[in-house]
């Protein structure tokens, strides 16, 4: 019965990722973790599901979940003490790097798309300022 529980258990943090079929699944899992860490939804030191629970929740191959955890461990995003469940890193420096990395990624994407339609930087930035607040208000309004 205990095992049956694990089949049904939703884990310590629940998550739902919409995967695309062309990027490696483990990369998408790591990306998701980074986003959650950067936004603070996964708190430092928070317990995360075991690799099996993760595979079960996300309906992905357990070997893939294993690989994602291994990479994240190597990157210092998560850590495991002895036989305890893995946890989100408490290392502020790592969290900071993740955040910067994500911001940089978003900015690069933005630059690429703005450049592709030949918009001058000043005009683009003005529009960004105007719309950024609107979008944020909108989001809060929704919430």
């Amino acid at each position: 019965m205990v095992r049956n529980e694990s089949l049904r258990k939703l884990g310590v943090v629940t998550m739902n990722i919409k995967f695309n079929n062309r990027d490696p699944v483990y990369v998408q899992v790591i990306q998701h973790f980074k986003e959650q860490i950067a936004t603070g939804l996964f708190e430092p030191g928070q317990e995360i599901p075991s690799r099996r629970e993760l595979a079960n929740q996300l309906k992905i191959n357990p070997n893939t979940a294993q690989r994602a955890y291994k990479e994240m461990e190597e990157q210092g995003l998560i850590f495991t003490e002895r036989n305890l469940p893995s946890r989100i890193t408490r290392d502020e420096a790592v969290i900071k790097t993740v955040r910067e990395e994500l911001i940089l990624e978003a900015v690069n994407t933005f630059i690429a798309s703005v450049q592709s339609i030949n918009v001058p930087l000043d005009e683009a930035l003005d529009l960004v300022k105007d719309n950024f607040d609107k979008a944020k208000d909108g989001q809060e309004g929704d919430a």
Binding site: L7, F19, N21, R52, L58, N61, P62, N63
Partner: peptide
Amino acid sequence: AEVFTSHLVEDRGVIITTHEINDIEHLID
């Protein structure tokens, strides 16, 4: 599908056949 990601299948070698990959794209090695 849930069975495939659980301890029931873990560590075993599995061969499945299908003509429809959509459902299990992320399940297989």
